[in-house]
């Protein structure tokens, strides 16, 4: 979202955070539900602030806290720079009022976490592939597409997500005996997961993902472009119509999209070292948490690429992985 880009590009905020804080980011959907040491710690701390999660409701926001769970400051999710700065300055002031002996390095001991709640923790699949997924509102030009000049505070920046493929799944993309020109349907779990969970308008907030029945038309093929001793290169091509009604003219929300991609497999290293996909087409309608869509049908673009191997932030689970079984089943 645009606010996070502005807040964390502000030099004053970046300096304070890098030198005086430890920074953490979590999905409240998991944190407020998990029944383990981390969940209990978070709820105990958050309940000292204004959001007490009555009835299981959200506790989202920006918190300043101590390692031993004292609440220092809070701001509900608005991360515009001036509000973020105010919050961290308030948190720092509250921290500095604590006794010196409580603030020194090593004063607080935090042991190992112990057993995590498997229902509400997610890890990337062992040996699997993690792709970054970016979604952006576009406009058409005479030469193709451009970044949309839509309101930058609501939908004008690139949104992020991740796609997880299990080891057996990404390996199933590569023909056992590849021959240039071969054309195979992309295995169903991969194709359906892309269509249902990763072609959604997330530019203004958490998107509604597509139910199985809302995938009205879909095809995705992998064509062997090139085979050498070193590599196999596949071209992905496909399209889909995703809509909330079988009659797309009546559908309140939909996406009519074409896909194209390049997958490169290194035969020596036995791994995929390139996985670039573009999806673009007309999207319309709003979801529950994504009001303010541009009127009519407007272009929306989605781009996929390989996440850097050692990136912490790219361990964030896919939005659709809240129901992890359904995400992997992707029927």
């Amino acid at each position: 979202m645009a606010g996070r880009a502005r807040a964390f590009a502000d030099a004053r905020i970046v300096k304070i955070l890098k030198t005086q804080f430890v920074t953490a980011a979590c999905d409240d959907w998991y944190q407020r539900r998990r029944q383990d040491a981390e969940g209990e710690f978070f709820r105990r701390m958050a309940d000292q602030g204004p959001r007490k999660g009555a009835g299981g409701s959200t506790r989202q926001g920006v918190y300043c806290l101590t390692a031993d769970g004292a609440f220092l400051a809070y701001r509900p999710g608005n991360v515009e720079p001036e509000y973020m700065l105010e919050t961290i300055e308030k948190g720092l002031a509250a921290w500095q009022k604590l006794p010196t002996e409580r603030r020194r390095p090593g004063a607080v001991e935090v042991g190992e976490h112990g057993k995590t709640d498997p229902t509400y923790t997610r890890d990337p699949p062992e040996g699997g592939l993690v792709l970054r997924v970016f979604t952006r509102a576009l406009d058409r030009t005479t030469e193709g597409y451009c970044d949309s000049p839509c309101d930058k505070a609501r939908g004008g920046s690139s949104q992020r997500d991740h796609l997880w493929l299990k080891e057996a799944e990404w390996k199933s993309l590569i023909p056992s005996r590849p021959v240039a020109g071969q054309r195979n349907a992309v295995p169903t779990p991969i194709a359906r997961r892309i269509f249902r969970f990763h072609l959604a308008d997330s530019t203004r907030g958490e998107p509604n993902l597509w139910a199985s029945a809302e995938v009205r038309r879909a095809e995705l093929f992998a064509v062997v472009e090139c085979v050498t001793a070193e590599q196999v290169v596949l071209r992905l091509e496909g399209s889909a119509l995703l809509s909330t009604d079988a009659d797309e003219q009546k559908a309140g929300r939909g996406y009519d999209v074409a896909l194209s991609g390049i997958v490169r497999y290194d035969r020596q290293a036995k791994k995929i070292d390139r996985f670039d996909v573009v999806a673009v087409g007309d999207h319309w309608g709003e979801g529950r948490y994504t009001p303010g869509a541009r009127p009519g049908r407007t272009p929306l673009g989605v781009a996929f690429d390989l996440a850097p191997a050692e990136s912490t932030i790219d361990r964030v689970p896919p939005q659709g992985a809240r129901e992890i079984s359904a995400y992997y089943r992707a029927e």
Partner: peptide
């Protein structure tokens, strides 16, 4: 010996 800034949202 530092405080934590925790950014916690619905949707990571």
């Amino acid at each position: 010996g530092k405080p934590i800034l925790l950014w916690e949202m619905d949707g990571h």
